[in-house]
Design a protein around this nucleic acid. Structure first.
Length: 296
DNA sequence: AATCGACACAACCGCAATCTA
DNA sequence: CTAGATTGCGGTTGTGTCGAT
């Protein structure tokens, strides 16, 4: 791979612990800036760009490294993506401990999954044999699960404090299936950032982040946008129109802080919780070929 | 046991915006 | 004012892991 050779050469690829340590020392001493000087001083054979990225994505304090996105975080991302588009850095400011890269990866992963689901369903719709994902991954059909719109009416703010980063590992298939089979408890995870030590700590570290980036910003729940972007209205015929649930048509206002965690009047868009996970995969069997891909 | 596909994650690249001399 | 340097962002790619077959 020729990751690093001569002294002048820029080193690429995975970071070593020693490099991280050097980078951390630099930040401790000079702060998170002057990235280019790290190389010019001969401390590391990395570009300033690379150093900055490493700091932002891995070394910065209070990052939720190794934590899968909680349903709450997933919902926030979905909402904000509908609102802002692919402004990952902006979206990430609403998710303490998450980086733009995290959000970006999460989203693209979801998009791929959705695209695959739609593709599979389109391909199999003609043959009416809907093995698709369910068969392949042995996903149980959840005909009795609570429809998303009903979930939206459930109490959203849990009581028990969430364990911070309980397990730094990927979501196992078992996790996913458990989540699907018994989604309600999972959906009632606590939402208060203050309950999460890491998040609470983040308030000290990133106070500005917890303010709405734009004061008085109008928050359109985004559900309509988001659904619209799926460009397959038939897909959602089974659901009530979003606006039909407790006056969703009107714009909500962000409170001054913690915009997504303390919305009053019910956070209707929780219908997007685990949006993709909540797809009963066979539901798509009745859907014809999408007019166009979900969204690039 | 081997293989494959899906997924999560890390890191690079190119471009744009911003800063600074 | 301007050119070069630096920083920030979004898109993309590469890799490792895990479950299913």
């Amino acid at each position: 791979m020729n990751r690093s050779t001569s002294k002048d050469e820029i080193r690429k690829g995975p970071w070593k612990a020693e490099e991280d340590e050097i980078l951390l020392n630099h930040v401790r001493r000079y702060g998170p800036r002057d990235w280019s000087s790290i190389r010019s001083k001969g401390l590391l054979q990395r570009t300033g760009k690379s150093c900055r990225l490493r700091w932002v994505n891995k070394l910065r304090p209070n990052l939720k490294n190794g934590c899968k996105f909680t349903p709450e975080e997933e919902r926030i991302v979905i909402e904000l993506q509908a609102q802002f588009g692919n402004k990952w850095a902006r979206i990430a400011t609403y998710l303490p401990g998450r980086t733009d890269n995290d959000v970006k990866n999460f989203w693209s992963s979801r998009q791929k999954r959705l695209a695959r689901i739609l593709q599979t369903s389109a391909a199999s719709s003609s043959s009416s044999s809907s093995k698709s994902l369910r068969t392949k991954r042995n996903v149980p059909v959840r005909r009795n699960t609570v429809p998303s719109m009903e979930i939206a009416t459930l109490p959203f703010f849990g009581e028990e404090p969430e364990q911070p980063c309980p397990k730094p590992q990927r979501r196992s298939a078992e996790d996913s299936e458990t989540l699907k089979a018994a989604s309600l408890p999972e959906l009632e995870i606590p939402n208060s950032l203050n309950d999460n030590p890491i998040c609470a700590n983040s308030q000290e570290l990133f106070p500005p982040i917890l303010q709405a980036p734009e004061a008085g910003m109008t928050f359109l729940p985004g559900g309509n946008d988001f659904l619209g972007r799926l460009e397959d209205s038939n897909l959602f015929d089974a659901f009530e129109p979003i606006g039909a649930v407790s006056g969703i048509g009107e714009a909500d206002q962000f409170p001054g802080e913690l915009p997504f965690f303390e919305l009053s009047g019910g956070f209707r868009t929780s219908n997007l919780d685990n949006f993709f996970d909540d797809f009963p995969t066979d539901m798509l069997d009745d859907v014809g070929s999408p007019a166009s891909p979900p969204r690039p």
